[in-house]
């Protein structure tokens, strides 16, 4: 095993410190070392979007970033969206109500893509939503219900604001 590096990251508000090999992918660190398996790995080369997380508030692919690179940064994963075990984030509620998922494999990546997107674009059109999720592949839904859910989420967030 090659030399390890110590890293400190904050994930969903909780600080973590670990020794990692430089070749450990951030997605594998989150899933296997920290144990947060909500972040999914589909393709491992940046194409499918299932591994999307927030790095300092911005959506990024965690499968094409190294865990060492996250040292000193704040991450948010899908587990960090809901306030507590009993509630859902408004975007999650919208996906539930509008049937925005079937198998759910792509869902964490889509949610983490939409969170910062809807903050910046609170009132998107259908076309804009389709463009915003163009980097996320879904093999089940045909996207229509995801788009509906995203538009419903925008409405919910607007009425909360």
């Amino acid at each position: 095993m090659s030399q390890t590096h110590s890293i400190q990251v904050t994930i969903n508000g909780t600080p973590y410190a670990h020794e990692v090999e430089p070749r450990l992918l951030l997605a594998d660190y989150i899933r296997q070392v920290v144990g947060l398996s909500g972040t999914h790995i589909g393709c491992e080369h940046g194409v499918c979007g299932a591994c999307t997380i927030l790095l300092d508030g911005q959506a990024v692919r965690s499968c094409i970033m190294l865990a060492v690179q996250a040292d000193g940064h704040e991450l948010t994963t899908v587990e960090g969206l809901a306030q507590d075990e009993k509630s859902l984030h408004p975007i999650q509620e919208a996906f539930w109500e509008a049937h925005g998922l079937q198998c759910g494999f792509c869902t964490p990546g889509i949610l983490m893509t939409l969170v910062p997107y809807l903050e910046e674009n609170p009132n998107p059109t259908e076309t804009e939503v389709r463009d915003a999720i163009s980097g996320n592949l879904c093999r089940c839904t045909g996207y229509q219900h995801i788009v509906d859910a995203a538009l419903l989420a925008a409405e919910k967030l607007q009425s909360k604001a």
Partner: peptide, 9 residues
């Protein structure tokens, strides 16, 4: 160029 998540990095 690619998608927003990729242009962020």
């Amino acid at each position: 160029i690619a998608h927003p998540q990729i242009r962020n990095r």
